[in-house]
Structures are given as structure tokens and as C-alpha cells.
Amino acid sequence: MSDVLLKVEGLTRYFDVSKPWLNRVIEREDRQFLTATADVNFEIRRGETFALVGESGSGKSTIAKMIVGLLEPSAGRITFDDQEMNFASGAAMRTLRRRFQMIFQDPYASLNPRWHVGDIIAEPIRTFGLASGNAISREVGRLLDTVGLSASDAGKFPHEFSGGQRQRIAIARALSSRPEFIVCDEPTSALDVSVQAQILNLMRDLQDEFGLTYLLISHDLSVVRHMSNRIGVLYLGRLVEVADGKTLFTHPRHPYSRMLLDAVPDLTLSGRRRRQVEGEIPNPINPPPGCAFHPRCPHAFDRCRQEIPQPVDADGSLAACFAVEEGRI
């Protein structure tokens, strides 16, 4: 059994954001494509939590959806437990689908409001034929108990629960097909901090109990720091740095990672002097040429405007930056 559970190679996804055909003809415009994810590579090892962090529009959810098979890649390969995911083959996808699940940001939108909680949780059990008859409701009760709710909640509807409780229901549902791998896309972004703490603790407990592997997606660096073994930083659809948590937070190598860390307000009142962060994220339809970060980068030089940097090894980090590559920073 290989150590790597999930491997992503050259993962790329375009979206056609062209105006309707007639408008294009009249306004003499070409088709327009938005590159949501470009040439992304990473591996997730069994039992670890790998995090993707990045600002809005950096491509986090697009990657998550491709991994769980909700969105077809434009290019690249996804390998799960040494099996390449084949979007064309429904049967092959179905067997793989049982083994991974996804939890979304908005626990309300992801739960069918007209279904009883018990049916929501039981659906994957039925779909994959994991149990039948009374065994299903026993299993649902056990899952509700596992996530800190009670078996009697099975007969209620999602609207009868608070945001945090709804996220528990979503987690119970995700666990019901006994997956090995769970993709969590901003699982606590819609929750208050005290409720977020409950959910993050629960996620950790479940990981210990069931040996789960997580892909955690978040824009919150503190959450990522708390939860993850390794972290990938995304900027405009590209992975700019991958490192283990400690390395990234103590010695970020990529200028964008550094900027992002500097932008986080400091709760510990250490008096840490923050560098002024410059500029905003450019339009992803026409990203800057070369390194997309160059208009905001304090270390940019000529090469950055012409070539796209590839990841290079830098003291335990993988960083896609020419200044790092050439030893300038």
C-alpha cells in the first residue's frame, strides 16, 4: 500500500466566460476563458490533513470539485489510491465515489430542506448498498451520536438546527459511506468562532478514530495552521508554495505566502510590525503575464514578467518563485 492516497498532476480547469455568440459577433470579441486552476501538482498522504489556502477566486473550490468528481478537469490527472480517476467511466467513478466525501461551507444549502435528517444521512448508505432495513436506522443513530447529536434528531428537518448542528449533520452524512478521504471546503467559514472550535475539534477526533485523510480548504490561515500537516498556498489558480505547517508559518519562502501571513491580524499582541500589503488580486480573465503575482511583489524583476516560475525545492518548501530559485531572497 502506497503512502500517498491522492495525487494530483498538472490539474487544470478553464471556464468559458464568453459573451453569447451574437454579442461576440456584433462586438467583434473572441471567446474568453478564465483559468480557475492551472497546472496544479500535489500529493496527500494517508492519514494526514493537507490544506489549500488562498484568497477568494484562487481556485480552491474548483480543485475540490474536480477531486470529488463534481467537475471535470480540462487537463491533468487525479490518482486516488493508485487508481487514476476516469471521468468517462460511470462504473469506475461510482466505486471510487464511496471512498471519498465532501463537506461544504454552507451547511444549509448542502442539506435538502425537505428531507428528514435521518434520510439525508442514510442516502449514501442506500446509494452504495452498505446496509438495509433496520440496520440503516441503527447506523444513522450511531452516526448522529458520533457527531454529537442524538439518535432522536433523525426525525427532524434541517431548519430545526443551528448552523453548527447542521454542519454536524453534514459531517454525519459524509461519514455514512465510511470514506477514507474527506474534502472539506471551508467547513467552518459560516460559523461563529465558538462553534467553529466545536467542529474543528470534532473533525480531529474523527480523524483519530477512523484514520481519515483530509483535504481542508480555507482562507483562514489560523484554522489551517491549527488543523494541517502540510499546506499548499494558491494564488490565481496556481500553487505558489507547498510546505509543512511549521515551515510555512515560521519560514514562508514565497513572497505571496509572506504577504498573506503579514496580513493576518495578530491576536497575541506581540507588537509584531506588519509589512504593508500592496494591491489587490487582479482579474483572473486577464492575469498578469509571467508570474501572476509580479504587480504586487516587492521582489519582482525582469524575468518575472516573462516566464512562469515552476516549483523548486527551497529548504523544505516547494516554492514557485524566481527570486527564491536564484537565491535573491
Binding site: S194, L200, L221, S222, H226, D266
Partner: peptide, 9 residues
Amino acid sequence: GSIPTLTQT
């Protein structure tokens, strides 16, 4: 105590 920080793990 419920807020994760960048330094504490």
C-alpha cells in the same frame, strides 16, 4: 480559547 492562532498548535 476557541480562536486558533498562528503560533499555537
